[in-house]
């Protein structure tokens, strides 16, 4: 019932706006806008997506499967999953902590923190990668110390994880901050007055209120973690079977003119994107429903 109302409510203004002759635009405006957006969508989004799968399957299913189960590809898949598995939980805890701090407390430097959270969005991923090379690379600040202790960060898995954490840093925090700010702290205050401790307040009051936003942030964060190219490319060193993630593997295959294999691996990433979109849409639907129930 709630879903029906939300759909109805969402459609209502547009329907109402158009059904009245006083506010209705000329038909050509409407159809031009629809045509332009559909053409763009087809040309820039749908066509490439279809191309990926067509090219991937050009040499048939056997070649497609072979390209995916080849050891280097498997290793790239493993590394991509590893980087995501580390960076998503890290950014999850950071995002919740930062959003909580910003929405529920007053402190000096709050605006600075909000600005800094956006830094990974505003800086080019290549620069992000370079920062890590400058800090942890052989000629970097900690380079000699790391070498002395036989630790490898750059051109190794830790560097890839670090770069991934950096570029996916803002997703969850950005999703939660406006949500938690809008919700205010009255419910938390009510919980504390009723005797709940900090953990109970978070577990039973805060978390249920932010869960859909949180999940949404995790999905976006995960998609970016698996798809990141620029920053990871700088720190990886492109060592086959060791420091190649899926996007880097695609590039290498492509540069070696193995087009079918490159597209096969790329289709994995495209599939990930589609799954992400589907999950995202489902979450949005759930969130509007629970939002309806709580207004």
């Amino acid at each position: 019932m709630a879903g029906a109302t939300s759909l109805h409510a969402a459609a209502d203004p547009a329907v109402r706006f158009e059904s009245r002759s006083a506010t209705r635009e000329a038909p050509w405006v409407k159809w031009t806008l629809i045509a332009v957006s559909l053409a763009f969508f087809a040309l820039f989004l749908l066509l490439p997506l279809i191309a990926v799968f067509v090219e991937a399957l050009r040499k048939g299913w056997d070649a497609y499967i072979a390209a995916l189960v080849e050891p280097d590809a498997l290793s790239a898949i493993r590394l991509t999953l590893l980087a995501a598995a580390i960076s998503v939980p890290l950014n999850l805890s950071f995002g919740v902590a930062a959003a909580w701090a910003i929405a529920k407390f007053d402190f000096r430097g709050k605006h600075l923190l909000i600005t800094l959270i956006d830094l990974p969005f505003s800086v080019s991923p290549v620069v992000a990668g370079l920062i890590y090379v400058l800090v942890f690379g052989a000629q970097g600040w900690f380079g000699p110390w790391l070498q002395a202790h036989d630790l490898k960060v750059i051109f190794a898995v830790p560097g890839i994880v670090l770069a991934t954490v950096f570029v996916t840093f803002p997703f969850i925090a950005r999703e939660l901050i406006p949500l938690m700010q809008a919700q205010g702290k009255e419910e938390e205050e009510a919980a504390v007055v009723l005797g709940a401790n900090g953990w109970q307040t978070f577990r039973y009051v805060t978390l249920p209120n932010i869960k859909w936003g949180l999940l949404y942030g995790v999905i976006l964060c995960n998609a970016r973690a698996m798809g990141e190219f620029g920053a990871v490319s700088v720190v990886s060193g492109h060592i086959r079977g060791l420091t190649n993630t899926l996007p880097l593997h695609v590039e290498i295959l492509y540069n070696e003119y193995q087009f079918a294999a490159a597209f096969a691996v790329a289709s994995l990433l495209a599939l990930l994107a589609l799954v992400t979109l589907a999950v995202k849409t489902w979450i949005e639907h759930q969130a509007t429903q629970s939002g309806d129930a709580s207004q």
Partner: peptide, 10 residues
């Protein structure tokens, strides 16, 4: 509370 602050998900 003035605006009740009921837990909306419960």
């Amino acid at each position: 509370f003035q605006h009740y602050a009921l837990f909306r998900h419960m």
